[in-house]
């Protein structure tokens, strides 16, 4: 499936090294338009601008967690369909269930590989395409 490599992506993580790594991996996959946020609280107003086609977020952040950010996105009529990928060290069954319930599109546990990221992104956008056809 052909993914639009021109999409605007927001990378949210409180660790700057992680944001750099995710951005570089996404670049490697052919994406080029990124913005960064260091917390859910800083990401939320950015997302509300409606600019982003894809959100990649950490879970555990000091002000607003990734799961809270996801809930806000899903609760907003304009933004609710934005694909949302969590990349996190949180790996408890109950947390993954919680994320699924909140409407996450993909869930990657750290540490992860470039192949995993690629695979999840493929899957997410296949599903998005199916949703749009339906």
């Amino acid at each position: 499936m052909q993914i639009n490599r021109d999409m605007n992506i927001l990378v949210v993580d409180d660790f700057s090294t992680m944001r750099r790594i995710v951005k570089n991996l996404l670049k490697e996959l052919g994406f080029s338009k990124f913005d960064e946020a260091d917390d859910g609280a800083t990401a939320w107003p950015m997302i509300q601008s409606g600019k982003y086609d894809f959100i990649v977020s950490d879970w555990n952040m000091p002000e607003m967690t990734g799961i809270e950010l996801l809930r806000r996105v899903r609760a907003d009529a304009q933004l609710k369909d934005t694909p949302f990928l969590l990349i996190t060290a949180e790996a408890k069954r109950s947390q993954i269930l919680e994320a699924a319930q909140a409407g996450v599109d993909g869930y990657i546990v750290k540490p992860f590989t470039a192949a995993t990221l690629n695979e999840k992104i493929q899957k997410i956008f296949e599903r998005v395409a199916q949703r749009q056809q339906a």
Binding site: D13, F15, T17, M18, R20, I21, N24, L25, E28, N60, A89, K110, P111, F112, T113, A114
Partner: peptide
């Protein structure tokens, strides 16, 4: 080089 870069993600985990 991509492997070297990805290996740096340990910093996020140990940092947490």
């Amino acid at each position: 080089l991509n492997n070297i870069m990805l290996a740096q993600s340990f910093q996020d985990l140990t940092g947490q």
